[in-house]
Amino acid sequence: MKKKLIVVADDFGFSEAYNYGVMKAYKEGIVTVASLMSNMEAAPHAVKLAKEYPDLNLTQHTNFVSGYPVSDPHMIPSMVDENGKFYRSVQWAPTSPLDTKCQGHVVVSYEDAKTETLAQMARFKALTGHAPNHFEGHSAGTDAINKAFLEISENTGIHCMALLDKETDSLKPAHELVMANNEYMLALHRGMCVEDFINTEGFGLLASPYEINVMHFHPGYVDAYILDNSTLTIQRCRDLQVLCDSRLRSWLDDHNIELTDYNAVYK
């Protein structure tokens, strides 16, 4: 079985500087998918850049923790503060004792997660002219959010990360390597290097029993908005450097791994 790899640049639309880095990672590196945060102010800029490359697969990076919602804030009270802005992930209640990111008391409801996901999907379509062929969550997730995602996926036929390794009548499984490899998560948070990838056999890619596998990165340049609104700063620059490194592409070629996008999950 020939393995296929979907390489996702998360956070497309976070800031204009970051957007330029994502496009470099697509044009000069191995990125095959840009996952758009349609609620962010820099989302139209991201879409404008992407329209020059119609083969770039744009998907939805559903965002509940940065900026302002697409929905009327009064419709999603569990997600926003008194100013109508999303609570940051550090304000969310932890989902397990090992959750070091979420340290607060905010609990997002299933109803609000569903409402805002659909609103961001509508904004995505308004910006791009089409619905996404995949959607996922940004930064923090809960059982309620996964439930909302799965219901939307069932109703729309659009693939989502909450499916994990499940196969349906119309969708093939897409194995999320980041969910299955602690070394991968650690490397993402400290800043990736090519040796991390090669020395771990692609963070379990070579050993994966699945045909289609998915890897997420955050390749981009850093500006004041990123510095003020993200815990990932220099790591984004390192991801960009790694994804454009010819040694990584050679490693994929040597192991007969085919780069693909989310079109591959549809039967």
Score class of each variant (00 low, 15 high):
Glu41Gln: 13
Phe12Arg: 05
Leu98Trp: 06
Asn182Asp: 12
Lys3His: 14
Asp143Glu: 15
Pro209Phe: 13
Glu28His: 13
Met23Ala: 05
Ser109His: 10
Leu58Cys: 07
Glu258Phe: 00
Glu52His: 11
Leu127Trp: 04
His45Leu: 06
Asp55Asn: 14
Ser71Leu: 07
Ala144Pro: 00
Val70Asp: 02
Met192Asp: 04
Ala34Asp: 07
Ser38Trp: 00
Glu201Tyr: 12
Lys172Met: 12
Pro209Trp: 14
Phe149Asn: 00
Glu111Ile: 12
Leu252Met: 04
Ala43Asp: 07
Ser230Asp: 12
Leu205Gln: 02
Tyr68Lys: 15
Phe203Lys: 06
Ile158Phe: 05
Met79Trp: 01
Phe135Tyr: 11
Thr231Val: 14
Ala131Gly: 01
Phe197His: 05
Leu205Met: 07
Asn263Arg: 13
Glu41Asn: 15
Ala126Arg: 08
Ala34Gly: 10
Val80Ile: 03
Val7Leu: 08
Met79Glu: 04
Val214Asp: 07
Leu188Met: 12
Phe64Met: 10
Leu49Cys: 11
Leu150Asn: 10
Leu188Pro: 00
Phe197Asn: 03
Glu258Thr: 15
Asp112Gly: 03
Leu36Phe: 05
Thr156Asn: 07
Val90Pro: 00
Gly13Val: 06
Tyr225Thr: 14
Ala126Asp: 14
His134Val: 09
Ile152Trp: 02
Phe14Asp: 03
Asp169Tyr: 13
Phe64Tyr: 13
Glu41Ser: 15
Thr200Phe: 14
Val214Met: 05
Ser89Ala: 15
Glu201Ile: 04
Leu243Ile: 12
Gly202Gln: 04
His218Asp: 07
Ser246Arg: 08
Val108Asp: 06
Gly191Phe: 03
Asp228Tyr: 04
Tyr18Thr: 08
Lys172His: 14
Ser208Gly: 07
Ala187Phe: 00
Val222Cys: 03
His159Asn: 10
Lys172Ile: 10
Leu227Val: 11
Val22Asn: 14
His189Glu: 14
Glu195Met: 04
Tyr225Trp: 14
Asp165Tyr: 01
Pro132Tyr: 03
Cys244Pro: 07
Leu232Gly: 05
Asn39Phe: 04
Ala264Gly: 06
His105Arg: 13
Ser208Leu: 09
Ser153Gln: 10
Asn229Cys: 01
Pro132Phe: 09
Ala50Thr: 11
Phe86Leu: 02
Cys244Lys: 06
Ile76Glu: 04
Val70Leu: 02
Asp169Glu: 15
Pro97Thr: 00
